[in-house]
Amino acid sequence: MPGAVSNAALIGNKNMKVLLIDDSRTMRNIQKSVLSQLGLTQIEEACDGQDALSKVGAFQPELILVDWNMPNMDGLSFVKAYRQLNKQTPMIMVTTESEKSRVIEAIKAGVNNYVIKPFTPDLLAQRIGETLSKKAA
């Protein structure tokens, strides 16, 4: 994944803690692989919004990748609930929801970037790099 390697230069803090929220283990593994290509290895996983809320206190993530459609608590509800607790940590919505209205809804709820499935590893790496460099600026 050459794109991921070139985006790795954008990640200043390789000890950054990342929380992945997706009900599909395969999708989490894909995201984990992209993150490790970027040099990020401190990764926690959650299978839905509720699970994620129970983990954010102890884990204190510095970047969150969240899916939209999940059982128990969907991604949008999680984003709204988490933004009540934390307004700083960047969040990227990684979802199959591709309609413009949905993207706007997610941005309004507090996500910093949006990746529509299907995505390539390079694209995800690029979005992560963009989000972190914007946050750093």
Binding site: S24, M27, I116, P118
Partner: peptide, 10 residues
Amino acid sequence: QAEELTELEF
């Protein structure tokens, strides 16, 4: 299909 496509790309 969108999820499968992502998995395939990867």
